[in-house]
């Protein structure tokens, strides 16, 4: 008997001899979200929740993403920026050296100051942005190794709660859910920002 057959046989035997005490579930009501994506109050809630977990949030008129990003990089002292190949060309700032990720080695990515990506969806209630490795976000390592992550979120991408975000995501894609900068609660259960992931997270909210 293979281990697979052995385990499955054990589980079937376990269930055959023992009707469950916890009753088989009927339908349990689940909140699905009732606010249309991109409503100003949702975008404002997202902003508050991001700030609460030490992300920095900026508002930018659609045409001025590049200028806003340039100001963020200048203030942080970042001189090199990596971007995914599919990032909108007019988001790239002209003030720093911009490197397009073409399967760069990890050590090279880790040596760059900042990364600029779009997002797939954002969750207002939890202050979360989700990346799905789309062309304007790039592979997962890209948003992980540089110490400063700048992420641009459009209002139409902002939903209220987690189930709405799952509805909009494609399960087969590699997904990264990000809620603030890297942090830990491992020392006396107090939250401290800045461990292995990017220590600074800036989110740029556009107006369209």
């Amino acid at each position: 008997m293979s281990a697979r057959e052995e385990v499955l046989a054990r589980l079937r035997a376990a269930l055959a001899g023992a009707p469950p005490v916890v009753p088989a579930p009927g339908p349990v009501p689940r909140r699905q979200g009732d606010r249309p994506p991109g409503r100003p109050e949702l975008v404002e809630l997202l902003r508050q929740r991001l700030v609460d977990y030490r992300a920095e949030v900026h508002r930018a008129a659609g045409a001025d993403v590049a200028g806003t990003v340039a100001a963020i990089l200048a203030a942080a002292g970042a001189r090199t920026l990596v971007v995914p190949a599919g990032l909108p060309a007019d988001w790239r700032p002209g003030t720093v050296e911009v490197v397009v990720d073409e399967d760069l080695p990890a050590a090279r990515l880790a040596g760059l100051d900042a990364v600029l990506t779009a997002a797939a969806v954002a969750v207002a209630e939890t202050g979360t942005i989700v990346l799905d490795a789309g062309a304007d976000q790039g592979r997962r390592a890209l948003s992980l190794l540089p110490d400063l992550h700048v992420c641009v979120v459009r209002p139409a991408q902002v939903v209220g709660i987690v189930p709405e975000a799952l509805d909009r995501l494609t399960p087969g894609r590699p997904l990264t859910w990000i809620s603030g900068p890297s942090a830990t609660s491992d020392i006396e259960l107090s939250r401290v920002e800045g461990v292995h992931g990017p220590r600074r997270l800036h989110v740029v909210l556009t107006d369209g």
Binding site: Y53, P171, R173, L175, W177, I178, G197
Partner: peptide, 16 residues
């Protein structure tokens, strides 16, 4: 409200 990072993967994604 949400932990800083959640990763989800499905088998192998070429190039990622």
């Amino acid at each position: 409200r949400m932990n800083p990072y959640t990763s989800m993967w499905t088998g192998v994604t070429p190039g990622d």
